[in-house]
């Protein structure tokens, strides 16, 4: 039988972002050496530093290791189905436009099973901020091949090495029409945080890819060492090239990782385009969904 010992004489230490976390759910499920926690920390810091109204901010995740992020943050948090975080978030945003809606999920979830939603959402320049944590494999289910796995990295379903061409995700979403596209690794905590802060205050489709170590599976299957070894690798092999042509930012196996803010354009977002268009063609007859949402209330 365990007993909680209260020791009031010891000052309780609190993590700086603890107010933004569901501390009753900590410890989290992520492995030692995993980079997802770092991304969560940077996102939480960005929220604190931008002073957004946390009551009006929702986080939506799909399925997978990164998909658990929505469950650890003290926000309206939605842990949805595999691949469907973006369309779920779209419904949330359009039905209550005053919300800031952030999608936080992994590469398999967003670019694999949810790939169709990713490109169409980028095409619409939908008013969503999307954080894609890329660990190059399906980690939750045991290290299977992902649409981002570089060739010829080994995964549990490509035991002889991957021969499929991977997505260059920043290029994919940029060419579809995303108005903000950046990539960092989990080593770049300050720059990543800055990108999050920037993106939180933009409209339209904002996409930030964060390359993170999966020490338990991807690194182990490819004999790349521990999480720390991968962080060392990011330190040596990442190159910051802001404004880089996204055609040049594909990630090869253990090759240079080009990071930076690639796209930051002031283009009308989905909602702006829709409002402007309907006002033009319908004039005074246009009745937009109010910012607080389409919920009807009893008239008193």
């Amino acid at each position: 039988m365990s007993k909680v010992i209260d020791r009031p004489e010891v000052a309780k230490e609190q993590h700086p972002v603890a107010p933004l976390l569901r501390m009753d759910r900590i410890p989290h499920i992520w492995c030692p050496g995993c980079g997802i926690g770092t991304v969560v920390k940077c996102f939480a810091t960005a929220l604190q530093e931008t002073e957004v109204d946390l009551n009006k901010l929702a986080i939506v995740s799909g399925i997978g290791c990164s998909g658990r992020a929505a469950g650890y943050m003290k926000l309206d948090g939605f842990h949805t189905t595999h691949g469907r975080a973006i369309p779920f978030a779209t419904g949330l945003k359009l039905a209550r436009p005053e919300l800031k809606v952030v999608v936080f999920s992994g590469d398999g979830d967003l670019a694999g099973i949810g790939g169709n939603h990713l490109i169409h959402s980028a095409r619409r320049n939908q008013d969503l901020m999307v954080i894609l944590v890329n660990n190059f494999n399906y980690a939750m289910t045991g290290g299977q091949n992902a649409p981002t796995t570089p060739t010829p990295a080994k995964t549990s379903t490509m035991p002889y090495g991957n021969f499929e061409h991977p997505f260059n995700v920043p290029h994919l979403v940029a060419s579809c029409g995303a108005s903000y596209v950046a990539r960092w690794t989990s080593l770049h905590v300050r720059r990543m945080t800055k990108s999050f802060k920037e993106a939180l205050n933009r409209k339209g489709f904002r996409f930030i890819e964060v390359v993170t170590p999966c020490a338990t599976l991807y690194a182990r299957l490819n004999k790349l060492g521990l999480g720390l070894d991968l962080m060392r690798f990011y330190h040596q092999e990442s190159e910051i090239r802001n404004g880089a042509d996204t055609r040049d930012v594909a990630i090869g196996y253990q090759s240079k990782i080009i990071c930076g803010k690639f796209v930051d354009e002031d283009r009308p977002s989905y909602l702006e385009t829709m409002h402007e268009y309907y006002r033009k063609v319908l004039g005074d007859k246009y009745v937009p969904t109010p910012p607080e949402g389409g919920m009807l209330r009893e008239q008193n």
Partner: peptide
């Protein structure tokens, strides 16, 4: 999925 998301805003979907 969008309908599920929208329903969380109280909007009939």
């Amino acid at each position: 999925a969008a309908v599920a998301g929208a329903s969380w805003t109280g909007t009939k979907s």
